[in-house]
């Protein structure tokens, strides 16, 4: 396994005592896999992402990347981790520093990790990366606010992938986008997974998007993993009542699948 969370527990103090955000959560992501984590708001998925990216220290459990235990890792080990694990956010409008050009944004990782110290060669890498995600190299000098939501998400993906990470964590990366644009970004992530051998941990509330992108799925409810399995297993034969309720609630975009129209209830006034 490339990346593993084992028995992660995290609580937060509140006025009413400690609340448990994550309760014994374990999940693993194999190299080259796309793994989905489904959770509604309040399920603890944000805390999970923060723990997985070493932005928050869990109360208990282990985070292992490529065989190295990352809790209590050395500075150098964390630096290596930062180079190999990247993140794409939900909101492409607040995840890009508005005062940096596309070139600076996409090239920042190359600077930080000293991968490309010559400005000219860094520009070449950025241009190449932009082409890969479907933007034009001429866009380099522009600022993020002159791009549409879908283009911004491409910039964010280029920024994350420029340092060639092995694991990409996606936090609801398409939920802020228009439907017709959403499909472009999903397809791009799939292409990247195949072309670069990228490993993806895809966290989302949208079940359809997770089904489309991920081969293996975990379902998180109130800080606990309630179900996990292969895509078809979880979506076609869910065993946990929560997963069943979740799937039953998703509106299917096919009017032939809806129940007959309701009749007026006799008790109604």
């Amino acid at each position: 396994m490339l990346f593993e969370l084992a028995h992660i527990t995290k609580t937060f103090p509140t006025a009413q005592g400690r609340i448990t955000s994550l309760d014994d959560v374990s999940l693993s992501v194999g190299e080259g896999q796309a793994v989905g984590l489904v959770g509604e708001s309040g399920s603890g998925k944000t805390t999970l992402i923060r723990c997985a990216l070493l932005l928050t220290q869990p109360d208990g459990g282990a985070v292992t990347f490529d065989g190295t235990s990352m809790l209590g890792a050395t500075r150098e080990q964390v630096r290596q981790f930062r180079r190999q694990v990247q993140l794409v956010f939900q909101d492409p409008f607040s995840s890009l520093n508005p005062r940096m050009t596309v070139e600076e944004l996409v090239g920042e990782g190359l600077v930080i990790h000293g991968i490309e110290n010559s400005a000219a060669r860094r520009r070449d890498s950025v241009a190449e990366m932009l082409t890969v995600v479907g933007l034009r190299p001429d866009d380099m000098k522009r600022y993020p606010n002159s791009f549409s939501g879908g283009q911004r998400q491409r910039i964010a993906i280029a920024r994350a992938l420029a340092i060639r990470p092995r694991l990409l964590v996606c936090d609801e990366p398409v939920s802020a986008l228009d439907v017709s644009v959403q499909a472009q970004v999903i397809n791009l992530l799939r292409e990247m997974q195949k072309a670069l051998g990228l490993t993806i941990l895809f966290v989302a509330h949208d079940l359809a998007v997770v089904r489309h992108l991920c081969a293996h799925v975990y379902v998180l409810n109130r800080g606990k993993i309630v179900e996990s399995g292969s895509r078809d297993q979880v979506f076609d034969h869910p065993t946990h009542p929560y997963t069943q309720a979740l799937l039953a609630a998703v509106p299917i975009p096919d009017p032939r699948r809806r129940p007959p129209r309701r009749q007026p209830a006799p008790a109604a006034s």
Partner: peptide, 17 residues
């Protein structure tokens, strides 16, 4: 706490940067 700052942190940026 802005997302782009968290993003830079994940990218490995130092506190100074």
């Amino acid at each position: 706490t802005a997302q782009y700052v968290v993003g830079a942190q994940v990218l490995g940026a130092s506190k100074w940067r």
